[in-house]
């Protein structure tokens, strides 16, 4: 896989759009299980009730990567996740997630080359405001002989 070629073909091109509904019970279950104690995340009757900031990381589109990305049979592994909240997300909100590859880069070590693919999902609310950005970092490993 040539990095420059991959960048030219795939960066910044939308490959998935999906809709999600934010459920109040899910917000409470998610928050309590993770040890949140603030009532704005754990109590649906709180006037400021909202999803905790990393809640949108649970949303997945239909695809994590473009269908025509030439992975040559390799399975990308989860290397990390970044979340950048932009505004409060309330129960009942419908979100639209639009995904594209935001970064493609490589690192080479003793065990061979690793290609990092950063898939970005931008989540928009009903007012079409950007509510959150979630970056999923995936890594594809190559052995030195490849």
């Amino acid at each position: 896989m040539e990095i420059e070629e991959l960048r030219k073909q795939f960066l910044k091109l939308n490959f998935d759009t999906a809709e999600f509904r934010v459920d109040g019970d899910d917000i409470v279950g998610f928050s309590v299980a993770c040890g949140e104690t603030a009532s704005r995340y754990t109590d649906a009757s709180d006037p400021d009730f909202q999803a905790p900031p990393t809640f949108p990381a649970r949303f997945h589109g239909r695809r994590m990567l473009p269908s025509d990305l030439p992975l040559e049979g390799k399975i990308p592994l989860d290397a990390g996740k970044a979340v950048m909240p932009q505004k409060a997300i309330r129960a009942g909100t419908k979100l639209v997630g639009k995904s594209y590859l935001n970064e493609i880069y490589e690192k080479t070590g003793r065990s061979g080359r690793m290609i990092f693919l950063v898939s970005r999902m931008e989540l928009f609310d009903e007012a079409e405001d950007l509510a959150c950005i979630v970056d999923s970092r995936m890594v594809v490993r190559e052995r030195p002989a490849e």
Binding site: G35, P53, V83, P85
Partner: peptide, 28 residues
């Protein structure tokens, strides 16, 4: 991994209840 990330955020809120998260980046 999503739960681990949210656990880290919960620790921040326990320390500073009014802290607003700008960004969190985690490596599993």
């Amino acid at each position: 991994g999503v739960m681990s990330q949210a656990i880290l955020t919960a620790m921040i809120h326990r320390w500073a209840p009014e802290a607003a998260l700008v960004k969190i980046d985690t490596i599993f």
